[in-house]
Design a protein around this nucleic acid. Structure first.
Length: 279
DNA sequence: ATAGGGTTAG
C-alpha cells in the first residue's frame, strides 16, 4: 500500500531518472512535462536537472523553451553555470538559431562565466557554421586564441573546418587543418573528414583524396565518415572508378557501408537488389 | 558528483 502511494508521488530522484530516460528515448515533451510536475511538487529543483531539461529541449529543437528555462533558473534563484549556458547555446545551434547562440555566448561574461572551449565555443562555432556564417565562426576561433583558451581547442577547430565546408570555403578549411598541424594539435579523423567534405564541395577531388590518404583511414574512431566524404568527392567529380575502388577498400577494411555509401558510387541498384550487406 | 554536441553523404 505504502509502496503504491510512494510511487504515485515520486521523489526527486525518481523524477530525475524519469526525465533522463525520457530524454534518452527522445520523448522531449514527456521529459518537459515530467520536469514541470517535479517543479510543482518540490520546492527545490537542482541546477543539474534544469540543465538536463534544457539539453533535452535542444535535442527536440525547442530553442524557445530552452531559453525560457534558462532564464527561469534566475527567477528560481538558481545560478546557471557554464554547463547550463552551453546546453542553451547548443539548443540554439540545433535549432539553427545562430544569432541566439551568439547572444548567449556574449551574455556569459556578464553572468561572470567564462565560456568553455570544449562546449560553449564549439557549440557557438557550429551554430555559425549551420547558419552559413563562416566569417563569424572563424572570428570566434580567433577570439578563443586571444583569450588563450588552450590547449584543447581541437573540437572548436573541427567545428570551424565544418563551418568553412558549409560556407564553401575549402581553402580556409585547409588553412585551419594546417594551423592545427603547426600548433601540434592532433588532427582526428573528424578533422580530416570535415576537410575532405570541404574539398568535395569545392570540387577539389584530388585534394580530397590527398587528405584521405593522409588521415590513414585506419580503424580509429569512425573511419566510415572519411570514406563517405571521399567517395562522395569522387562521385561529384564523376570519378566513378575511384569511387568504386574506395568502396572496395571499405569492404576490405570490414567497414559496413550504409545505404547511402552504396548509392554514391552508383552501384546501389545492382548490389542492393541482390541484398548484400545492407541491413 | 550532477548536467553540457567536434564531422558527412541522400
Amino acid at each position: 500500500m505504502l509502496d503504491i502511494r510512494l510511487r504515485s508521488r515520486p521523489g526527486a530522484t525518481s523524477f530525475e531518472a524519469d526525465i533522463k530516460s525520457y530524454a534518452r528515448t527522445r520523448h522531449w515533451s514527456a521529459a518537459l512535462h515530467s520536469f514541470q510536475e517535479s517543479s510543482k511538487l518540490h520546492s527545490h529543483v537542482s541546477e543539474s536537472l534544469y540543465t538536463s531539461i534544457i539539453s533535452a529541449q535542444g535535442k527536440g529543437r525547442q530553442w524557445q523553451r530552452a531559453l525560457a528555462l534558462l532564464s527561469e533558473m534566475w527567477s528560481a534563484k538558481l545560478e546557471p553555470n557554464v554547463i547550463s549556458y552551453s546546453a542553451g547555446i547548443s539548443a540554439c545551434e540545433q535549432s539553427g538559431q545562430w544569432l541566439q547562440a551568439l547572444a548567449l555566448l556574449g551574455d556569459m561574461p556578464e553572468a561572470k562565466l567564462e565560456p568553455d572551449v570544449f562546449f560553449s565555443y564549439s557549440a557557438g562555432i557550429s551554430a555559425c557554421g549551420k547558419g552559413e556564417q563562416w566569417q563569424r565562426a572563424l572570428a570566434l576561433l580567433s577570439q578563443m586564441g586571444e583569450a588563450k583558451l588552450e590547449p584543447n581547442v581541437i573540437f572548436s577547430y573541427n567545428a570551424g573546418i565544418s563551418a568553412c565546408e558549409k560556407g564553401e570555403q575549402w581553402e580556409r578549411a585547409l588553412a585551419l587543418l594546417r594551423e592545427m598541424r603547426e600548433a601540434k594539435l592532433e588532427r582526428s579523423i573528424i578533422s580530416y573528414s570535415a576537410g575532405i567534405s570541404a574539398c568535395e564541395k569545392g570540387e577539389q577531388w584530388q585534394r580530397a583524396l590527398e587528405l584521405f590518404d593522409r588521415c590513414g583511414r585506419r580503424s580509429s574512431s569512425a573511419p566510415s565518415f572519411s570514406y563517405n566524404a571521399a567517395i562522395s568527392a569522387c562521385e561529384k567529380a564523376e570519378q566513378w572508378q575511384r569511387a568504386l575502388a574506395l568502396f572496395g577498400q571499405m569492404l576490405e577494411a570490414r567497414l559496413e557501408p550504409n545505404v547511402i555509401e552504396f548509392a554514391l558510387p552508383g552501384v546501389a541498384s545492382r548490389t542492393c537488389d541482390r541484398g548484400i550487406v545492407v541491413r
